[in-house]
């Protein structure tokens, strides 16, 4: 009975993977036919079932870029780059889409070491960091076991254990930092062309304190009914309606 259930679930998986690829190719054909709006709708529908594929986000970003939705294009490329951070095409298109933004938010300068750390952290995706953590701990344990077996090279292996311990701490630390960022830091991209940011979560009492444009990335600090408290990289804080942005997962 168990074997039958496993077989059915496996065959279902195969069918869904085939459908997935077929829909993806249909979307690509629509892109070839310059029907970018329909292509973006099709890619979005695939995303509902398979939300973790960087190629899908990348193509969706292209569809949005071609249909002049720069905010949504930046959102899709950002999703793609978080899954596949070293893909050259994604990096290039994201950079180009960001250059089409109106807003230019000035970031205060930080320590060089911190900048380097961010570059290192973003070099791998969360899954890749997690994988590196598991591999590094496996190597450490094997080295400890070997040290107990081969007494003649025990001294060398002890040095290696020390080094591997430091690497483990570093890799696990970065993985944890990445996890915390993914889990607790809510970021979003503005998809409306121009958004008035209010001082309060209503338009009656609140004043319009600044204006932001499509494609600007912000951090969501708090949510209240249809409104969200946002923070920009330069420290500006205000309230906007939820419909104006799309959250980055």
């Amino acid at each position: 009975m168990k074997i039958i259930i496993i077989f059915i679930s496996l065959s279902l998986n195969i069918v869904s993977a085939e459908d997935f690829n077929k829909s993806f190719q249909d979307g690509n054909n629509l892109m070839e036919e310059k029907d970018f709006i329909e292509a973006s709708k099709l890619y979005e529908s695939i995303l509902e079932v398979h939300p973790s594929n960087s190629d899908l986000y990348y193509n969706l970003g292209n569809a949005y870029y071609r249909s002049n939705n720069i905010g949504l294009a930046i959102w899709a490329y950002s999703q793609a780059i978080s899954l596949n951070p070293r893909d050259d095409d994604i990096q290039y298109n994201l950079l180009l889409a960001k250059s089409k933004r109106v807003d230019n938010i000035k970031i205060s300068e930080t320590f060089v070491i911190f900048t380097k750390y961010i570059i290192l952290r973003n070099y791998f995706s969360f899954n890749e960091w997690f994988f590196l953590s598991s591999i590094s701990i496996l190597i450490l344990i094997i080295t400890i076991i070997l040290g107990n077996i081969f007494y003649n090279i025990k001294e060398l292996l002890n040095y290696m254990v020390g080094l591997l311990l430091i690497i483990n701490l570093l890799v696990h630390g970065i993985t944890f930092d990445k996890y915390v960022k993914l889990k607790f830091e809510k970021k979003a991209v503005f998809i409306a062309q121009s958004v008035d940011v209010s001082s309060e979560p209503n338009l009656v009492d609140g004043k319009i304190i600044f204006k932001i444009h499509e494609g600007t990335i912000c951090e969501i600090l708090n949510q209240r009914e249809n409104w969200s408290k946002i923070a920009l990289k330069d420290g500006k804080i205000g309230w906007v309606k939820n419909k104006y942005y799309r959250s980055l997962k």
């Binding site: 190719q25 190629d55 899908l56 193509n59 095409d89 298109n93 180009l96 899954n127």
Partner: peptide, 17 residues
């Protein structure tokens, strides 16, 4: 201009949880 779409078949990620 942006780079072209990825047209190859989508593969399952190797590194999984």
């Amino acid at each position: 201009d942006i780079r072209y779409i990825h047209t190859f078949n989508l593969s399952k990620p190797i590194i999984t949880t």
